[in-house]
Nucleic acid binder design. Structure first.
Lengths: 173, 173
DNA sequence: CATACCATGTAAGCGGTTACATGATTTT
DNA sequence: AAAATCATGTAACCGCTTACATGGTATG
């Protein structure tokens, strides 16, 4: 994923590693602050695969930079990724679902406690997203992402209700 | 995640690697058919960390097995995981969101095509889930997971509509 | 002068994927 | 006799995380 975010940024203009890292961290509102190391290993692979070029640029003031630019191959790969739908569109292999599975199969008794805590976590996240959304200066794209997160949280909250109802039905006969 | 699925299965009774693999593949309706190799490397780590014990059992008929059983430490770790809410409850760092980000920042023009294809993929997945749900013999836990997947797909479909509307607004002024 | 920031990297490890290897037993 | 299934593993790689190392330059 990082690979394509990088290609997407380079499609606009050439950038060096540190700059890429800042741009991505900013775009994810700090919810994904990439480790410096990963940028450079990813750039190594991108260069190896011919999707970017790198060139060392000496500067008088700042430390030397390795400026990256996208190649024709990189552009093609990015275009392909941009029209390809996410596959699969939804995964059963998910940590929340996995916890439900294990709760159900071990029948361990603290399921109610888990559901309550998970619901709390969702509601808290929802509140902080709602707060963030109120900012009038928010970029439309950022707002769109926040809306997506809200919709998914609401879906999971509904599902926690379903789970509880299903548990009561199992227990109550 | 696999680690905890394994511990969850072993909490019930001891099992060997091949058996664990089958059980997990079955529980995820074949949507996650784990590679054989990963089971054994995960079991290696679990043993190293003292969460399981392994013992070679000779059989006359079948090939030898390495039967795994959960330890006290494993039980404790499993219990901890089972009550801990998923953190974070929702991620902005997600492939669908990433594609939206890159579409918006590159302004590459084929966004409509992507949204249409993504919507198709979601609707198709939704249809197949609905079909699977009609099975009367379905285990309640499997049905619960399918319901979760449905809710998330519906959320994403709503979001694709939002995205389209937001694009029109940007373009139309 | 300290410390924050700019900029690049290495190393070790986790969780996962794909592919391959080995050998036995059961089914067709 | 051939193919499927049982059962265990190794090797190489991807994407990512945490932690650490190395220097320069700008700011307080």
């Amino acid at each position: 994923m990082l690979k394509y975010l990088i290609l997407g940024l380079l499609e606009g203009r050439s950038r060096h590693g540190y700059e890429l890292r800042q741009a991505i961290t900013e775009r994810f509102q700090g919810t994904w602050s990439i480790n410096a190391g990963q940028i450079y290993t990813t750039l190594d692979r991108l260069e190896r695969d011919g999707l970017i070029d790198r060139e060392i640029v000496r500067t008088d003031l700042a430390p030397d930079r390795r400026v990256c630019s996208i190649t024709e191959g990189g552009r093609a790969e990015l275009k392909r990724w941009l029209v390809d739908p996410v596959d699969p569109p939804v995964r059963l292999k998910d940590e929340l679902f996995a916890k439900a599975l294990v709760h159900r199969t071990t029948g361990e008794g603290r399921t109610g406690e888990f559901i309550a805590r998970q619901r709390d976590a969702c509601l808290q996240a929802l509140a902080s997203l709602t707060r963030a959304r109120r900012d009038r200066t928010l970029e439309p794209t950022t707002r769109l992402l926040l809306d997506g997160a809200v919709l998914r949280l609401e879906a999971d909250l509904k599902w926690l209700d379903l789970w509880e109802a299903s548990d009561r039905k199992e227990a109550g006969g």
